[in-house]
């Protein structure tokens, strides 16, 4: 089966000589058709550049990018079957919402009546049926986001790119939009590729996640794989802030003599086990995060579920966990 998006040893470099920065460094990846794919990483990790390489606003210095098998080397953005939802939405302020949504059809020469009818259909799809006559300036952030989505979808792209799609929305709206994007993607069957620095967003929406660091993909896998079996210390720390143990520390705590990840929620307070002292508490609502200094000169984060008794700072506690929760990671990074 042909991948929807395929990167083969793609590099993108900015600047030249000593000041050169490899924003994307020898990345190979394949995104399957109909997949909801997340590119996750901190700012400057190359994820956005990868997205722009797919949309065509950047060209690779090395490597090839294929979309449904077709080499994109000489194909400009306006001739790719790919549409983007921009981070700042980039709605045209001088046009009505309806004209914004119909823009892609207008530049293709579709007659006014047909394209405006199509625009109305798309607005209904994103639950904004009565907003066609307004200007983008009269909409809220969440509504603009939906208009941007409708405008990108009206062209019936084979791949939809979303750049930090929920970044500008408040928490409540973000959660609602997560569910909505997910169900929209299921319904339309289009390949969605989205970029985010929010691991929660990536884990909850995506079928598959690629974790970026310094221009490279450090791990690709399902959200569960990435979360439960992080490949590197970077992934363990970036995705859900794990306790990362050095080989010696791990061995002392009864684990393998390797770099090891131990998730805070896998640790329990018990009557017996490794002794330590509570140094700090952070109340999270759905639980409490407790920092415990072990006698071994090591801090462990422990996530207590809501309702569990919470120790006081300074209190001596004992920690216990399943040995299988200690996940050994490959490599040194």
């Amino acid at each position: 089966m042909i991948a929807a998006v395929d990167f083969t040893h793609v590099s993108r470099q900015f600047g030249s000589g000593a000041a050169a920065v490899r924003a994307v460094d020898d990345v190979s990846l394949a995104i399957a058709e109909g997949e909801f794919f997340a590119m996750l990483g901190p700012s400057g990790s190359g994820k956005t550049t990868c997205l722009r390489l797919i949309s065509g606003f950047e060209s690779p210095n090395e490597g090839t990018i294929r979309i449904f098998g077709q080499d994109m080397g000489a194909v400009p953005p306006n001739r790719r079957h790919v549409n983007t939802v921009f981070q700042d939405y980039a709605l045209f302020p001088h046009m009505t919402v309806r004209d914004n949504v119909a823009y892609g059809l207008m530049v293709r020469g579709m007659d006014r009546r047909t394209r405006l009818a199509r625009a109305e259909e798309m607005l209904a799809l994103v639950h904004l049926p009565e907003f066609g006559g307004r200007k983008p300036g009269q909409l809220s952030g969440g509504q603009r986001q939906r208009v941007a989505l409708a405008r990108a979808l009206v062209n019936e792209p084979r791949v939809l790119l979303l750049d930090e799609p929920l970044g500008a929305l408040d928490l409540k709206l973000r959660e609602a939009m997560q569910d909505e994007l997910k169900s929209l993607q299921k319904r339309l069957g289009i390949t969605f590729v989205f970029v985010t620095h929010d691991q929660g967003e990536a884990l909850s929406m995506a079928d598959r996640v690629a974790v970026f660091s310094r221009g490279k993909i450090v791990q690709t896998g399902s959200p569960a794989e990435v979360y439960e079996r992080p490949a590197t210390r970077f992934v363990a720390d970036f995705v859900g802030s794990s306790n990362v143990l050095s080989p010696e520390q791990s061995a002392r705590l009864g684990g393998p003599a390797r770099w090891t990840s131990l998730r805070p929620e896998a640790i329990r307070l018990a009557g017996e086990g490794t002794p330590g002292t509570v140094t700090a508490l952070r109340y999270l609502g759905a639980g409490t995060r407790v920092a415990v200094a072990l006698e071994a000169g090591l801090d462990l984060g422990v996530l207590l579920p809501a309702g569990a008794p919470v120790p006081a700072p300074g209190e001596a506690v004992r920690l216990t966990w399943e040995r299988s929760a200690m996940h050994a990671m490959e490599g040194e990074e």
Binding site: S55, F57, P76, P77, N78, R79, V82, N83, T84, F86, Q87, D88, A90, L91, F92, P93, H94, Y103, G104, M106, V107, R108, R151, A152, N155
Partner: peptide, 27 residues
């Protein structure tokens, strides 16, 4: 005029001339 506005136009399939007429000039 933000650069993303011009990118959005191109992304939606507009040729440079169309971007000029429908986006740059009005803005």
């Amino acid at each position: 005029v933000p650069a993303t506005m011009l990118e959005a136009s191109s992304d939606l399939g507009a040729r440079p001339g169309q971007t000029f007429r429908h986006v740059i000039l009005p803005l």
